[in-house]
Design a protein around this nucleic acid. Structure first.
Length: 309
DNA sequence: AATTCTCTCAACCGCGCCGTT
DNA sequence: CAACGGCGCGGTTGAGAGAAT
């Protein structure tokens, strides 16, 4: 928050000089902007600032409207579903907050950005730190064998019990945080041997989430089913078989497309709340994504509580 | 009770894009 | 084609509130 600019005089009072106000908005200014927008709708923002009688620049008015005054804004804390969606979308889009916000009705890019930078980032970092490898302990049969993902794509096996199974999710999330999408995209994950391993890039141009009841993990596109945290929407109505037929063993940009199923046995499958039971995304390097097309495939999430309060 | 620390989030800044002239 | 202005976006700042000491 910023201190109101002294040049702006007392809030709500017109001052004669032409200096534009900065800093916090007063209730009077909010009223002025709100009334103007209600009566005139959105137009040229510099006109809005002028015609509404505000000593603010158009940019400031726009920001205030978008982030605070807009009637369709949803206030309050993020729901777990929204949180999961943010994480998922961030894994897809990186720091493209406006595009993420476009998928979360009632939320602003600023809000999501703040939420990410303060809450999610910190939480995931903390969780990843408490799951540091402990090579002195051998895994018991009931333990889940998991692995960390180094930025070099090295295998980093670790062992943990089922109560901390979601740590794997957090580790990977943490990795994504530290290495935005373009970097994460260089790695794939493979659990086929019981260890989570990084697989070479040429193996990761295509992943597929299995339909089985196992908790699933999908490193690159953010599908995490370990504790039902991640909801996986169906991208399209095409059947698994059709998609598999059409997407496997093809070549894109010189990379051979392969399919890897990353699933984990875990007896807590009842916690998974799937929207669909299948999700699949062709994975291309970030710069090659047709983001519009990609995001068109991600539906609005009906399970989110978008009621404006 | 006072002080310090930490966290949250509203708001600004700078840059790039795009349309207009 | 260049200059200009408006807008949108992502990064950053810093005030205020609450927690911890």
């Amino acid at each position: 928050m910023r201190k109101p600019d002294p040049a702006g005089a007392a809030p709500g009072k017109d001052n004669n000089n032409n200096k534009l106000r900065k800093g916090l908005w007063s209730p009077e200014e909010d009223d002025k902007l709100m009334n103007y927008m209600r009566n005139n709708g959105q137009g040229c923002w510099s006109d809005v600032a002028r015609n509404a009688g505000l000593q603010r620049c158009g940019k400031s008015c726009r920001l205030r409207w978008i982030n605070y005054l807009r009637p369709d804004l949803k206030r309050g804390a993020f729901s777990p579903q929204e949180e999961s969606l943010i994480i998922h979308l961030h894994s897809l889009l990186g720091n493209r907050w406006s595009q993420i916000a476009a998928r979360l009705p009632g939320r602003t890019d600023n809000e999501i950005k703040n939420f990410w930078n303060s809450t999610i980032k910190k939480r995931l970092k903390n969780l990843s730190s408490i799951t540091s490898p402990n090579t002195s302990n051998s895994p018991s049969p009931k333990d889940h064998v998991m692995g960390g993902l180094s930025s070099q794509g090295l295998i980093m096996p670790m062992y943990m019990d089922s109560s901390s199974a979601n740590a794997m999710q957090n580790m990977a999330m943490s990795h994504m945080i530290d290495h935005p999408s373009s970097h994460v995209l260089e790695h794939g994950l493979n659990m086929s041997s019981g260890y989570l391993t990084a697989v070479p890039q040429y193996m990761t141009t295509h992943h597929q989430i299995g339909v089985c009841g196992d908790h699933s993990f999908h490193g690159r596109n953010g599908v995490f089913g370990l504790d039902g945290e991640m909801f996986v929407p169906p991208l399209e109505s095409v059947s698994i078989e059709e998609k598999a037929k059409s997407t496997s063993s093809t070549e894109i940009n010189g990379y051979k497309k392969a399919t890897s199923n990353i699933t984990m046995n875990n007896n807590r499958t009842e916690n998974i709340a799937r929207i669909g039971n299948y999700w699949e995304v062709d994975e291309l390097r970030m710069g090659e994504w047709d983001l519009e097309e990609l995001m068109n495939d991600v539906p609005s999430f009906a399970f989110l509580d978008f009621q404006v309060q």
